[in-house]
Amino acid sequence: MSLRITVWNEGVHEARQDPAGMAEYYPDGIHGAVAEALRAHLPDASVRTALLDDAEHGLPEEVLADTDVLLWWGHLAHAEVSDEVVSRVQRHVLGGMGLLVLHSGHFSKIFTRLLGTTCSLSWRNAAEREVVWTVDPTHPIAEGVPSPVVIPEQETYGEFFDIPAPDELIFISSFSGGEVFRSGCAFHRGRGRIFYFSPGDERYPVYHQPEIQRVLANGVRWAARPDLQRTAPQVSNPARDWFLEQQRS
């Protein structure tokens, strides 16, 4: 079964904030660059894009039902995302849809809701070098990814990163300014798999690096559960001694 992927981007830098500057590295938007990378690494997959300004932010029920993995990039317009759409996405994640949250999407409504913390961190944007170290080389998301990956210029993220302890920590980053950061974290919520990956600021061509593209493709493969019937865990109230009836049958 071919994977069905939706790449969501708020699109504010591209359309409102800095369209000329964005055109230098991302003429088709960050969503366009990420989608192109995934098509190259996952040629059998179906990849669509969606934007904040689309009707229902491009994430109506029928799109989410037809999505195995959703990638989320946001920065300036977290508050503009409809709570109704967030609840819809949350329901699908709990039911088994994969979610990749990228860079400043750590402050998105969907990520903070699923993790239950502020997801705040330390940051500085001074075009510093980032070195991404693999700390779990056996994890599927690390497959084929060199360690370390060197990003010549990137926004600096640093600890403390206010997230629950990751179920799986795959990458940590060090920066030339001295910070360290848990840059690749995996979580499980309900039946859904979530991967947070921090490299990828709008000012730098990070999403064009082959190693970064490989991480995203691996993340999609890991998060996807296409054969899973999409239902969230539910409360049940079995009668006493129900298991005895099953043993008799």
Rank of each mutant, 00 (worst) to 15 (best):
R4H: 06
I5S: 11
I5T: 09
T6L: 05
W8Q: 08
E10D: 15
V12C: 06
Q17V: 10
M22T: 06
I30V: 14
H31A: 15
A37R: 02
A37S: 15
L38D: 10
H41S: 14
S46V: 02
R48G: 11
E56P: 12
H57G: 13
P60K: 00
E62I: 01
A65I: 00
W72A: 00
G74A: 10
A77D: 14
V81F: 15
V85H: 05
S87Y: 02
Q90P: 03
V93L: 10
G96L: 07
G98T: 07
L100Q: 06
H103F: 02
H106M: 07
S108G: 11
F111M: 13
L114C: 09
G116Y: 05
L121C: 12
W123F: 12
A126K: 08
A126E: 13
A127Q: 14
V135D: 14
T138I: 00
H139G: 05
H139L: 03
P140A: 00
G144T: 04
P152I: 00
P152T: 00
T156C: 13
Y157Q: 06
G158W: 08
F161Q: 11
D162P: 09
I163T: 15
A165Y: 00
D167V: 03
D167Y: 05
F171I: 07
S173F: 03
F175V: 02
G178Q: 05
F181Y: 15
R182D: 11
H188V: 15
R191C: 09
R191T: 00
R193I: 01
F197N: 05
S198H: 12
Y207I: 01
Y207R: 01
R214D: 12
R230N: 07
Q234Y: 08
W242C: 07
L244H: 05
L244Q: 12
R248S: 14
R248A: 14
